[in-house]
Computed example of a mutant assay.
Amino acid sequence: MDNSISYGDDYKYIPTTSVGSGVGLEILPDVFCYTIQIVNVCLVGKPGTDDFVLVDAGMPRSADKIIEIVEERFGENKKPRAIILTHGHFDHVGAIKELVEKWNVPVYAHPLELPFLTGAQDYPDPDTSVEGGMVSKMSGMFPVKAIDLGDHVHFLPEDGSVPFMPGFKWFHTPGHSPGHVSLFRKEDGLLIAGDAFVTVKQEYLYKVFTQEQEISGPPRYLTTNWEDAEYSVKLLDSLKPDIAVTGHGLPMRDEILKSNLHLLVSEFKRIAKPSHGKFVDNE
C-alpha cells in the first residue's frame, strides 16, 4: 500500500448508470473504449503487446473492472506503460489510487490540473442550480476534494507529445477544468476529447441512462469557464477529426461528427452554454 496516494475525504461510490455500462467498443485496431457506469475509459495500443496506455481512470470503486478489461485485452498481469488524464474530475480519476498502487506506473496531466491531483486545491462545488436536468440537481453529491498522487503524477511534455502514445499530440482544452486536455492523432483523425464536448446531454438523467446520442458542450454542472469552453470546442473543430471518443456518450464518426461539431461551434451559446448558473453569472 502506497500511503503517499490518497483520495479526498468526500470520495465515494456514485449510484448512477447507463444502458452502455459494461459495454466495450473497438474503435480502431489499437483503440478500445469501455463504459463504466456513465463514463468512458480508453485503452490505446495493440492487443498482444506490452505497449499500451490507459486514458482516464473511471468512476469511484471501478478499479477491479478496469484491471479486468486490461487483462482481457492485453493478457494476464499486463499493465499499461502509463495513465494519461484528460482532467481530474472524480469520474475520470475514480480508480486511480488502486491502479497506481497495483501497477506502479506514472500518471500524466496538464500542469494546470496538478493542484487538483496533488492535494493542493479542491475543485469548486458543482453548480446544482445550473440550467439542465436531474443530474445537475444530483451533482451536489459528486466528490470535488483534491486527490493526492504525490510524485506519481507528472507534467505532460511541453512539446505536445503524449508519453507512450506515438503519433498523438495533446491540446490544452480548458473550460470544463483549468488543465483539461484532449488527445489527437492526425494520421487517422482520432480525437480523444475527454469532456471538452460530449455526445450525450450529461445533465439529463433519462438521456444519460439511455445514452441518446446528441452532441453537447462539456457537462454544465462542473464547467467553470464558458469562454474557455467555447474556445476549446473551436480548437477541436479546427483539427477536423474523423472519429471522436468523448468522456460521456457514444463515439461519433465521419460526416455525422463533422456536421455536429460544426453545429456546436456555430451555436455554442444555444446548445452548450446554460442561460443561468453560478459559473455563467460570474462571467
Rank of each mutant, 00 (worst) to 15 (best):
H176D: 01
S177R: 06
S136H: 04
P166S: 05
G179L: 10
F171R: 04
L191M: 06
E227Y: 15
E203S: 15
V135A: 03
G150F: 05
S182T: 12
P163R: 10
E158V: 11
F164C: 02
F155T: 10
R185F: 04
P178H: 01
V208N: 08
N225H: 06
N225Q: 00
A146S: 11
Q213P: 14
G167E: 03
P174H: 12
L190S: 06
V130E: 06
H180T: 15
V153D: 05
G140A: 05
L156W: 02
W170C: 01
I147H: 10
T173E: 03
M134H: 13
I215E: 10
G160S: 09
H152M: 07
F155P: 02
E131I: 13
K145T: 01
P166H: 06
P218V: 02
V181P: 01
I147D: 03
E230G: 00
G140V: 05
G160V: 06
G179Q: 12
L149T: 03
M134D: 12
H154T: 08
G175S: 11
F155L: 07
A196W: 05
S136T: 06
R220N: 13
D159K: 09
F142I: 08
I192C: 00
P218Y: 04
H172M: 13
K186L: 00
F164K: 05
H152V: 05
G167K: 04
R220T: 14
P174A: 13
M141G: 02
V130K: 09
S216T: 14
G132N: 11
G132T: 12
V144F: 14
G133W: 04
K207T: 08
G217N: 14
H172K: 14
